[in-house]
């Protein structure tokens, strides 16, 4: 049995190696033509224009900005929801609300994209005068709403998995429900919560359609969420579904962009892994 289990787990390595191989083998061709220095330091990303520049920074800044906005929306809302459902709500409402929230993860992202463009952006424009019709703020907020269930649902599971004797101990010491939730249950469940946040974040980093529709797609270094911008995934989708011939440098630029994204997620995960190790509580 152990052998079967090991093989199942080893599939994960095979998949990652496969992705790295596909991305790397094409990137090698790309970097044969474009110096890595330009890729890292150039501030313009215009591989599809006649005056081609290959600086990844604008795309990364777009990805960072939209993800940041999404997390600013989703982490507080998702965690509050999880704590509320796990520690305060009665079983019946929990069992209705949680799956309903999970529906948010099932809404097709094209729908979210048009929701951002046609509903959220006009609303924001009333609050922030001068906000352009395409911006990362609106795309990021909607992305945040989309990832709420990832964070809420998985965090709630982690919170519920904390044994009741920890809660009982806390109550016996005179703590209120809220104090128990935040000081006892949440720290005990932190590894699950971090996992949930990382999952939500990776979904935000990898989200394509919302930014393509509502974010503006103009690759520039983004310093404020009110600007329009393009993300790495938006660029990859645009090229992969576009009319460029395969095998050209323009086409290979998506693999270089993909490589950057892969490295980015690697860094995120190392950070999360470190946090996880540090705060994981055994009970």
């Amino acid at each position: 049995m152990e052998g079967v289990l090991f093989l199942a787990a080893a599939v994960a390595i095979a998949v990652l190696v496969g992705i790295v191989y596909v991305v790397l083998s094409e990137s090698v061709k790309f970097f044969a033509a474009v110096p890595i220095g330009d890729f890292l330091t150039d501030t313009r990303w215009t591989p599809l224009f006649e005056d081609a520049h290959y600086g990844i920074a604008p795309l990364l800044s777009g990805t960072f900005m939209s993800t940041l906005v999404a997390l600013a929306v989703a982490v507080p809302l998702g965690l509050l929801t999880a704590i509320y459902l796990s520690e305060f709500a009665d079983a019946r409402s929990r069992e209705t609300i949680k799956p309903t929230l999970e529906l948010l993860a099932g809404v097709p992202t094209v729908v979210y994209g048009y929701f951002a463009l046609l509903m959220v952006t006009p609303l924001l424009q009333r609050l922030i005068p001068g906000l352009p019709g395409f911006n990362l703020l609106s795309a990021g907020i909607v992305m945040g709403l989309m990832i709420i269930p990832y964070i809420a649902s998985l965090s709630e599971d982690a919170l519920r998995a904390v044994p009741n004797n920890l809660r009982d101990g806390s109550y016996a010491m005179g703590a209120t429900k809220l104090e128990t939730a935040f000081r006892v249950v949440l720290p005990a469940a932190v590894s699950g919560v971090v996992g949930a946040v990382v999952l939500g974040m990776s979904r935000a980093v990898g989200e394509t359609m919302i930014v393509v529709i509502a974010g503006g797609q103009q690759p520039q270094i983004v310093t404020s969420p009110t600007q329009q911008g393009a993300t790495v995934t938006a660029f990859i989708a645009q090229v992969a579904l576009g009319d460029l011939p395969f095998g050209t440098l323009e086409y290979q630029s998506i693999f270089a962009a993909g490589l950057a994204l892969l490295l980015l997620t690697l860094v995120f995960n190392l950070v999360a892994f470190a946090l996880h190790r540090r705060y994981r509580e055994a009970y």
């Binding site: 787990a9 080893a10 994960a12 390595i13 998949v15 990652l16 190696v17 496969g18 992705i19 596909v22 991305v23 990382v198 999952l199 974040m201 990776s202 980093v205 990898g206 989200e207 394509t208 790495v232 995934t233 990859i236 989708a237 992969a240 998506i254 693999f255 993909g258 994204l261 892969l262 997620t265 690697l266 995120f268 995960n269 999360a272 892994f273």
Partner: peptide, 25 residues
């Protein structure tokens, strides 16, 4: 730990890269 790292990173790989993998492989 290699498996763990692989799993954690796969969770963060954007879906479109899985598409590229599937196309290539």
């Amino acid at each position: 730990s290699a498996i763990e790292i692989a799993v954690n990173n796969l969770a963060g790989v954007p879906s479109i890269l899985y598409g590229l993998l599937a196309l290539g492989l």
